[in-house]
Design a protein around this nucleic acid. Structure first.
Lengths: 300, 300
DNA sequence: TTGAAAGCGCTAACAC
DNA sequence: GTGTTAGCGCTTTCAA
């Protein structure tokens, strides 16, 4: 009989099953953008892990816009997803999360870190300490940080905080933050700083894409990386390894983070015990030290 | 009454509606991987276009594996998607497509080009002619192509064909193809060629990721780009613009291609007239000429 | 204009 | 075991 069904090409109807069981076997995913490989890699990990368990994913992108975050969650809810994994701009104030909680749909945050929510993340501040420490060991004293708009992301904020702490601990004064519009290709703001007489000898960037652009800016100012200036990134996107010079960065296990998030979520769905803040997961990061950093120039 | 429903937080149940209307408002997407930004950018375009129309997407990745392509389609079918946009390895022999046709689910291929299927793509062969032509104009004679495994993708094959034709037309003999394992970080095969006495003065790569790795290989051989060797890519991933040196490449409108594919698909779903091969769309590409290319060295 | 009823295809419960 | 049935929440049709 089973064989007959097979032969006739019978395929159970998912919506009927969903209607009956109240389980859609779909997870909603909310991400800022797929244009940053860090999120694409993460989504790839999620796709792999869910497929293994017969689940599908439904991704929505927000362009870092708060209203879009909420709208995305609303949409996912209306599609009846069994759970949601999200990367939000600011976990503390996210209306998207509020919505999720009010509907008692299980959710997990990824990359965000917040004591009140279940999160899968890395210790961004500790990572910053490590990378700044290395630069200091190499003789760098004038170190500045390059950031996207801080208000756009609690991750950037946390990384900046870690940077300031680390500088403080090393007895150094952090240079003024170089804030770059997130989406644009402009290198002007960075170049301006690099043309000052007491320019930094090292630039710590809040993500790899920004680091790439910073390397570009250095080049346009006639500076060589790493001879004249050291540059570091954050995220560990795959591409960074193939760059010339190879980018020093904090490598996060992006695909793993995605896997961990959906696995946790699925456990929650199956056991009917929603992921809780107390069980938040911190995955190990790795300082991937590479060619974009060297000892501070002796005659700056 | 509507207001009351609103106030009570009423949210129509998607699976009940789907069951009744036989319309899920979900499109399936099949992609090789999200690790290559070209597909991530495309998916981003798809996400945007579908969201605007109240549709959701369900992506599956195949890692370029044929059996996974078929399995992905099978899964999507069982989830009851209204249509499928796919990037397959080889449109001519894809069992995934056969499956789709047998179920009469509307589908559109993206990046693939094949006379028997509805496709959204760019003219890869013509693009190759243009880029080779430019190199020849700059005095390059010894030009070789770097490719992923040809068998893995009809796109690579087509690009290679275009390369050979263009070389032929210029009265030049194509150098032996440099075939690189697609996923690995190895630069050895490329470096080997670059260390031969009559090394190529230009390397044409079948995609941007490979071009990045090729730049790396050149660097490791002590060659400067573009002074000693010119390098071109294909795809136009966003990152290429921020590289140093900026990568010359064939820029495809990746997000646009995604948008066009799902828009076409949705038109098909709504009008009940499936996208047909005869209406295939060729989007314009652009040769993005940049710093990674220069005149052939006079004393090679 | 408003209301009632049938049925989409499945699963779970219960009867045989 | 094997068969029957109710009902998940919606849309559509037909009746009042």
């Amino acid at each position: 009989m089973l064989a007959v069904a097979q032969k006739l090409g019978y395929r159970p109807n998912a919506s009927a099953r969903t209607l009956r069981t109240q389980r859609s076997k779909v997870l909603g995913i909310v991400l800022p953008t797929l244009e940053n490989p860090v999120f694409a890699e993460c989504l790839q990990g999620m796709a792999g892990a869910t497929a293994e368990q017969g689940y599908a994913i439904m991704p929505m992108t927000t362009q870092y816009r708060l209203d879009t975050e909420e709208e995305a969650v609303r949409q996912l809810l209306s599609f009846g997803v069994d759970g949601v994994a999200l990367v939000v701009s600011d976990a503390g104030s996210s209306r998207a999360i509020t919505l999720l909680r009010s509907e008692t749909v299980p959710y997990v945050l990824v990359y965000n870190r917040h004591p009140a929510h279940p999160c899968v993340s890395v210790a961004g501040d500790a990572a910053m300490h490590e990378i700044v420490g290395r630069l200091v060991d190499l003789g760098h004293r004038r170190i500045a940080m390059v950031c996207g708009r801080l208000t756009a992301s609690d991750r950037a904020l946390q990384r900046h905080l870690g940077f300031c702490e680390a500088m403080d601990q090393a007895g150094l004064t952090p240079r003024p933050l170089i804030e770059v519009p997130f989406v644009e290709t402009a290198t002007q703001d960075i170049a301006d700083v690099l043309r000052t007489p007491q320019r930094p000898t090292a630039l710590v960037c809040s993500n790899d894409l920004l680091a790439l652009r910073t390397m570009r800016a250095a080049h346009e100012c006639g500076l060589s990386v790493p001879q004249d200036i050291s540059i570091t990134g954050f995220d560990g996107i795959g591409l960074a390894r193939d760059l010339t010079p190879r980018l020093s960065t904090i490598a996060q296990p992006n695909a793993e983070m995605g896997r961990a998030a959906v696995t946790w979520l699925l456990d929650g769905v199956n056991s009917r015990r929603h992921p809780s803040a107390a069980d938040s997961i911190t995955l190990p990061h790795r300082v991937r030290w590479a060619e974009s950093c060297a000892a501070a120039p002796t005659h700056p």
